[in-house]
């Protein structure tokens, strides 16, 4: 085992130019993968918070009694997709309107009677977005006599989720493609090394080396190449992330909510190592004695 590591390190050093090229290639590949995962993570993060931001406004009919309102509140509080509800009376609504109008609040001066409806604001649970269930709830509410109208940004949300799913599908394809490309790069590098050491391997076999003993240095080598490529790609992703945050945050505060999870940066070298080992394994093929 120790000897296998030594052999691998020696070969890594001896063939450093071809290896440098491989590492950079893998690094670029993993950098792209890193960006995709980074984008997916943030799209996921932003969109999963959307249901929380979009609330469902249930406007109640004129003259709905307290008993009906309480029944409705109880019904909503029990619903599994509801985070919390807030009852807004006619008066509350007027106060809120005044506040939001600020300086223009004088336009309300002429009213002798409050023209607003009482309403219930429903906050949906985070991550609980499920169109059919939300729509089911809305249709149920619309059918009630005590409910005048239900307002919900369903179309916008629907569109966003469609886009999100599209992005996910495309990303999955690109991830697969790049993973295969990285495997192929490791495969060809290790294949070259294997052919260069063909004579040596023949002698190893004749002296009684097991297949594992012969394979291990190549697997370590391929894994190390992938790992180094992953470090490079991870560093690239991190630097780009810092760059974007530093540059853009003041102009587009919306992007300030982007996060680069440390796990992702750490996953790149690990993923690179795994892809490298897969490529090396394929390159070695079936050894025969």
């Amino acid at each position: 085992m120790i000897y296998s590591i030594k052999l691998a390190l020696k070969s890594l050093w001896f063939e450093k130019w071809i290896h440098m090229l491989t590492v950079v290639t893998i690094g670029v590949g993993l950098f792209v993968l890193g960006l995709i995962f980074f984008s997916l993570y943030n799209i996921e993060g932003i969109t999963s918070r959307l249901p929380e931001r979009f609330s469902v406004m249930v406007f109640l009919s004129e003259g709905t009694g307290n008993r009906e309102i309480n029944q409705l509140k109880a019904r909503l509080s029990e619903d599994p997709i509801v985070e919390r509800i807030k009852y807004i009376s006619k008066d509350d609504a007027l106060v809120e309107l005044r506040t939001s109008l600020k300086d223009a609040a004088y336009i309300l001066e002429g009213l002798d009677e409050n023209p607003l409806f009482p309403s219930i604001e429903i906050r949906l649970k985070k991550n609980s977005f499920d169109r059919t269930r939300v729509e089911g709830l809305i249709n149920e509410l619309k059918g009630l006599r005590s409910v005048n109208d239900v307002v919900y940004g369903e179309d916008l949300l629907g569109t966003i989720y469609t886009i999100r799913n599209g992005v996910k599908t495309i990303s999955a394809g690109v991830i697969l493609l790049f993973s295969m490309a990285i495997i192929f790069v490791c495969y060809s590098t290790v294949k070259i090394l294997f052919y260069r050491r063909k004579e040596e391997i023949e002698i190893f076999k004749l002296l009684g080396a097991t297949k594992a003993f012969i394979r291990l240095p190549f697997l370590i080598e391929g894994g190390t190449l992938g790992f180094l490529g992953g470090l490079l790609g991870g560093a690239g992703t991190y630097i780009l992330y810092r760059f974007i945050n530093g540059l853009v945050i003041s102009d587009f505060p919306m992007l300030g909510v982007m996060h680069l999870p440390l796990g992702l940066v750490a996953a790149l070298p690990a993923g690179g190592a795994i892809l490298g080992i897969i490529g090396s394994t394929i390159a070695l093929g079936r050894l025969r004695f």
Partner: peptide, 22 residues
């Protein structure tokens, strides 16, 4: 079995005609 070949070869020292030194 093929997997036993390395262990059997360890019982056999060979002085190859062409040496096979690295």
């Amino acid at each position: 079995r093929e997997s036993a070949i390395p262990y059997l070869r360890r019982n056999i020292g060979v002085v190859f005609q062409d040496f096979k030194l690295l």
